[in-house]
Nucleic acid binder design. Structure first.
Length: 723
DNA sequence: CGCCGCAGGCTTTTT
DNA sequence: GCCTGCGGCG
C-alpha cells in the first residue's frame, strides 16, 4: 500500500513524531504554529495504514468540540473514509458516552441529565435556600468553584476530612448536601462526568478491562490543559497495555485557574520514563521578528520543558508599539490602522484585536462602530445557553425526568400560569420535609388539600400539561416533540404576543431550536442509537452549547480575549492594554506561578500573529468608572528592542479623556477648536484642549498647559490661539 | 405579578 | 461604568 501521502510534506521532527515506535509512549512538545493537529491526524493515519491498527482501537481526546470535529474531519480526509465508529471526542463527551453505557453501574438513573454551569449555580442557590444559608455569607459562585475544583482534583467530600476551620467545614458540608441533591434529582455537572467515569473504572474492574482491551492507542490533544482527574482517567485507561501519545505545549498552558495542571505535561517524561519526547519547533505561521519576540518573552519563565521556535521564512516587519494617552486614543489608533490596511486591499477578517479582559472590548467596539467598520466579538451567550432555549429544554428535561427540580423550578411559572412564590414555598417545604422531589411534593400537596382552589387548579393543570406532553411526544419525532412542547407550554405564544426586537429574536431562537432538533433527530438515527433521541439531544445541548454568534459571513474584524484566541491565527494582530495591573492582571502579579501563566498568555497572544503584530498600552484608562494611570507592562520590557518600532503619537501631551476629537467646539464664526488641539494663551502659554462644557461664547474650555497645569477658561475671554 | 430603583460586585472559559 | 440581584411599591 502506498503510504507516502501520510509522510510526505512533514518536516523531520513531525515525521519522527508521526512514526514514533507504536510500543512506546510519546510526548510531543508542539510549539505554536508547528503543525500540531497535522501530527495528530497523521499519527492516526500512520497507526491505521502503516501499523495496521484498527481505528476502533484508537481513542483520540481533545478539550473542545471544535478541536474534536476538526480532527475527525481531517482524519477522514487523510484516510479517505468515514469514521463513524471512531472514538474521537472531548474528555467530557467520551466520559459521558461511557456513563450512558454503564449508567446503573455508575449509580446513575438511565435518563440522567447534565447540568451546565448555569444550572449548577442555580442548583447551589436553591440548595442554600433549603439549608437556610445567607448568600452574602456563602457566595454561590465561590461554592461552585470550590466544588468544581475539588472534583477536578478527584476529591469527594468524605476525602476532605473535617475541615481545618469553620469556613472549610461549612464548604465541605455544602458540597456534601450538593452531591446528595444532585444524586436524588438524577443530574450530574460537568466535573462529575469525569469523576464518575474515573470512579466507574476503579470500582468496576470488569468494565475497565473491557475498555483496556479495546484501546491500544490513546492520543491526547492540548495535554498541558489536563487537570488531575483527566490525567488520572487517562492513566487508568492506559494501564499497562495502551500507549499514550500526548501532544501539547507547556508554554501555552493558560488555564491553571480552572484546574489545568501544567505539572502533568512537565512530569510526563518522569511518569513514563520509557516515553519518547519529540519537539516541534519549526513554525509555519509567523515572521522571524514575531518569533523572536515570543521566544524572548517566554524565556523569562522558569521550569520550562524548553523549546525555541524558528522559521525558514524571513524576518518580516518589526513589531509596532504604540503608547496611547488613554483607552479611547488606543482604540482610535487601532481602528485607523485597520482602516489604512483595509484601504490597501486587506480583508477585515485578517485583523484580530486581542485583550486581556472582556471589559476592554467596549471602547474598541465604540471606535469601530463610529468608524463604520464591521466587527465580531467572540464569547458571550451561546445558543443553548440562551434563557428561552433553556426554558424549552427544561420542559423536555421534565418530560424525561420528573424529579429534576432545577428544570421544574425553571418552568413551573414560565410563562406565568398563576403559581406564585407562596404556593411554591408550600411545595418546597413539603419536598424538604419528606425528602421528595418537587414533583412528588406537588402531588402530595394536592392530595392533602392545603392550597386554595385557584393554586391547586393551576398546579394540577401544570402536572397534567407535563404528563400530556410526555404521552404525546412518545409517538413523535424529535423535531415534532420539541415543536409540540413549545406549542403546548405556550412558550411560543408568550413571545409571539410580546412586542419588541427582543421577543422577536427569542421567537426566532425557539424556531431554530425546532430546526436543530429536527436535524439532530435525522442525523442520530443513521448512527447506532444507544438511547432515546430526546435524552441524546438534551446531552448534546449541554455538552455542545453551540456557537455564540450566528454564522454571520460578513467580512469583519475579530475581537476577542487572549484566552479565546488560543489556537487561532491572523495576519494582523493587535495586542491592546499592555499595562501593569491589566496585563499582567493585578490579581496575578504577586504570585510567581500566576505571573508565569500571564506570561504564557502573552506568548500565546504574540504567536497568533502571522505577518504583523502591533502592541499598545495606554497611559491612563477608565477601570470600573475610575481613571487609572498605569505603567507599561513588564512584558513590553521583556521584548528585544531591536525588533520593536515605536509609533509616536502626534501631540505631546495628554489628550481629551471623554470625548471624541472630531467634535468641534464652536465659539463663534472665527473661533473654532477641537479636542486635543494645541492652543496658546497670553498668560499660561502653550497647552492642549482637554475638555469643554457648554457652547458658543460662554463655553468653558479645559486646557492642559505645559507649565501652568490644567485650567478651565471661558471661551469668550480666553482668546486662545490655535497652534 | 411585574416594574423600578438601589447596592454591591467585578479576570480569563470549556465542558 | 455596567450588570445582577433584591426589596419595595403600584
Amino acid at each position: 500500500m502506498d503510504v507516502s501521502h501520510i509522510l510526505d510534506g512533514l518536516n523531520d521532527a513531525q515525521r519522527n513524531a508521526v512514526t514514533a515506535p507504536v510500543d512506546r509512549h510519546g510526548l510531543i512538545l508542539a510549539g505554536a504554529g508547528s503543525g500540531k493537529t497535522r501530527v495528530l491526524v497523521h499519527r492516526i493515519a500512520y497507526l491505521v495504514e502503516v501499523e495496521n491498527i484498527s481505528p476502533y482501537r484508537i481513542l483520540a481526546v481533545t478539550f473542545t468540540n471544535k478541536a474534536a470535529s476538526e480532527m475527525r474531519q481531517r482524519a477522514e480526509q487523510l484516510l479517505e473514509r468515514i469514521g463513524a465508529g471512531w472514538w474521537m471526542g472531548t474528555f467530557h463527551g467520551i466520559a459521558h458516552r461511557i456513563l450512558r453505557q454503564h449508567a446503573s453501574a455508575a449509580n446513575l438513573p438511565e435518563g440522567f441529565q447534565i447540568l451546565d454551569s448555569e444550572d449548577q449555580l442555580r442548583t447551589i442557590r436553591r440548595l442554600l435556600k433549603i439549608l437556610e444559608l445567607d448568600e452574602s455569607r456563602w457566595p454561590p459562585r465561590q461554592i461552585q468553584s470550590y466544588i468544581n475544583s475539588k472534583k477536578d482534583e478527584g476529591l469527594r467530600p468524605h476525602a476532605l476530612g473535617q475541615g481545618s476551620d469553620p469556613f472549610q467545614r461549612k464548604m465541605i458540608d455544602i458540597y456534601h448536601h450538593y452531591e446528595d441533591h444532585c444524586q436524588r434529582a438524577g443530574v450530574i455537572d460537568f466535573a462529575e462526568i469525569l469523576l464518575r467515569a474515573h470512579e466507574l473504572w476503579l470500582n468496576q474492574p470488569d468494565i475497565l478491562a473491557e475498555y483496556q482491551q479495546r484501546f491500544s492507542h490513546i492520543l491526547v490533544d492540548e495535554f498541558q490543559d489536563t487537570n488531575r482527574i483527566q490525567y488520572a482517567w487517562l492513566r487508568v485507561l492506559a494501564g499497562h497495555q495502551a500507549k499514550l501519545f500526548v501532544v501539547g505545549d507547556d508554554d501555552q498552558s493558560i488555564y491553571g485557574w480552572r484546574g489545568a495542571r501544567i505539572e502533568n505535561i512537565q512530569q510526563f517524561p518522569r511518569d513514563y520514563s520509557e516515553s519518547l519526547t519529540v519537539r516541534l519547533e519549526q513554525n509555519y505561521r509567523s515572521t522571524g521578528n514575531i518569533l523572536r519576540a515570543a521566544n524572548a518573552i517566554i524565556q523569562n519563565n522558569v521550569e520550562r520543558l524548553g523549546k525555541e521556535l524558528w522559521t525558514s521564512a524571513g524576518e518580516g516587519v518589526p513589531l509596532d508599539l504604540y503608547a496611547a494617552f488613554n483607552e479611547v486614543d488606543e482604540a482610535r489608533f487601532v481602528v485607523s490602522r485597520i482602516q489604512q490596511k483595509v484601504a490597501e486591499g486587506h480583508q477585515r477578517q485578517e485583523f484580530a484585536v486581542l485583550y486581556r479582559s472582556n471589559a476592554q472590548s467596549r471602547v474598541l467596539e465604540e471606535a469601530l462602530l463610529q468608524a463604520g467598520v464591521p466587527y465580531r466579538v467572540y464569547g458571550g451567550m451561546r445558543f443553548f445557553e440562551r434563557a428561552e432555549i433553556k426554558d424549552a429544554l427544561a420542559y423536555l428535561r421534565l418530560i424525561k425526568n420528573r424529579d429534576d427540580d432545577g428544570a421544574l423550578e425553571r418552568v413551573i411559572n414560565t410563562p406565568t400560569r398563576g403559581i406564585g412564590e407562596k404556593t411554591l414555598n408550600t411545595i418546597r417545604q413539603q419536598a424538604r420535609a419528606q425528602q421528595y422531589s418537587l414533583w412528588q411534593a406537588i402531588a402530595a400537596v394536592l392530595e392533602t388539600n392545603q392550597l386554595t382552589t385557584r393554586a391547586a387548579g393551576a398546579l394540577s393543570a401544570f402536572m397534567h400539561l407535563i404528563n400530556q406532553m410526555d404521552e404525546e411526544a412518545r409517538s413523535l419525532t424529535l423535531g415534532a416533540s420539541v415543536a409540540l412542547v413549545l406549542e403546548s407550554s405556550t412558550l411560543f405564544d408568550f413571545y409571539k404576543h410580546q412586542r419588541g426586537e427582543k421577543a422577536q429574536s427569542k421567537l426566532e431562537n425557539l424556531e431554530e431550536l425546532v430546526a436543530a432538533a429536527e436535524q439532530f433527530g435525522t442525523e442520530i438515527s443513521e448512527e447506532e442509537l444507544p438511547l432515546d433521541p430526546l435524552t441524546e439531544f438534551l446531552s448534546h445541548a449541554a455538552l455542545e452549547a453551540g456557537e455564540a454568534q450566528s454564522d454571520d459571513w460578513e467580512d469583519a474584524v475579530q475581537l476577542m480575549t487572549l484566552h479565546s484566541a488560543k489556537g487561532l491565527e491572523f495576519p494582523f494582530v493587535f495586542l491592546c492594554g499592555l499595562e501593569e495591573g491589566l496585563f499582567p492582571h493585578a490579581m496575578s502579579a504577586e504570585d510567581p506561578l500566576r505571573l508565569a501563566e500571564e506570561r504564557r498568555l502573552c506568548y500565546v497572544g504574540i504567536t497568533r500573529a502571522m505577518q504583523q503584530l502591533t502592541l499598545s498600552h495606554a497611559e491612563s484608562r477608565r477601570i470600573y468608572g475610575k481613571e487609572v494611570f498605569s505603567r507599561p507592562s513588564r512584558f513590553i520590557r521583556e521584548l528585544p528592542t531591536e525588533c520593536i518600532q515605536e509609533i509616536r503619537a502626534q501631540a505631546k501631551m495628554s489628550r481629551p479623556v471623554y470625548r471624541s476629537s472630531q467634535e468641534a467646539i464652536v465659539v463663534d464664526k472665527q473661533q473654532e477648536y477641537s479636542l486635543g488641539q494645541g492652543v496658546f494663551h497670553q498668560k499660561f502659554g502653550e497647552g492642549v484642549i482637554l475638555n469643554y462644557e457648554g457652547e458658543g461664547a460662554r463655553a468653558r474650555i479645559q486646557v492642559q498647559f505645559k507649565s501652568a497645569g490644567s485650567k478651565w477658561l471661558i471661551a469668550e475671554y480666553a482668546n486662545l490661539q490655535a497652534i
